Computed example of a mutant assay.
Amino acid sequence: MSLDDLNEDVQDTYRTLEDELSVSLDRETQNELALLEAALEPEETDELVRRAIHMLFQSTVETGKLDFQLRSGYDVTYDEYLSGMTFEEMTGADQYPAMDDERRYQF
């Protein structure tokens, strides 16, 4: 998979999320959400869900888990996704022909 595949998958998922997202909660999650809502008193419960997604995303980026998953599935990193170019494209390494190891040191 590649950077183009990742961009396409993100756009497809974004389109499906534009429809109303309904999430069923297990008992433990519902209790935790109720406690957070009582303690933090947000205007809407949706605000807590948005905050949770932001926190999960941030911790996944900071710990390197996002890069690991992206590298495993798409062979790119989060920085490459943000820039829209792979490291090889940024450095120009993909512009040169492959080296012939047998003839590399012959003059």
Rank of each mutant, 00 (worst) to 15 (best):
H54L: 07
D75A: 08
S24P: 10
D12S: 12
F107A: 00
Q106C: 04
A38P: 06
G64R: 02
F68S: 14
D12I: 10
P97S: 06
L6Q: 10
D100A: 04
A98C: 08
V49Q: 03
S2Y: 02
G73F: 11
E89C: 05
L48H: 00
R27E: 03
R104F: 15
M90V: 13
T60P: 04
R27A: 07
D94Q: 09
E37A: 10
R27C: 11
R27G: 03
E47F: 02
E80T: 03
F87W: 15
Y14T: 12
N7D: 07
E89S: 11
T45C: 02
A34R: 07
T77M: 06
T16S: 12
D100T: 04
M90A: 14
D26A: 05
E41T: 10
Q58M: 05
D9P: 07
S59E: 14
L25V: 06
R71S: 14
L25Y: 01
E80Q: 14
E37I: 03
D67N: 01
T60A: 11
P42Q: 00
T45L: 00
E32H: 08
T16D: 11
G73Y: 12
N31F: 05
S83W: 13
L21A: 05
R103C: 11
Y96E: 07
R15D: 13
L66M: 03
M99F: 13
L66N: 02
T91Q: 01
E8A: 14
Y78D: 08
V76W: 00
Y105E: 07
D19C: 10
E43L: 07
Q30H: 02
V23C: 07
T63C: 02
L70Y: 08
R51N: 06
A38Y: 10
E8Q: 15
D79T: 03
M55Q: 11
E28I: 08
A38Q: 01
A39P: 00
L6A: 05
R71G: 12
E20P: 08
Q106A: 06
Q58K: 06
A93F: 11
F107I: 10
L82E: 10
Y96C: 08
L48P: 00
T77I: 09
V49L: 01
E37M: 10
G84E: 06
P42H: 01
S22Q: 13
D67R: 01
G64I: 04
P97M: 03
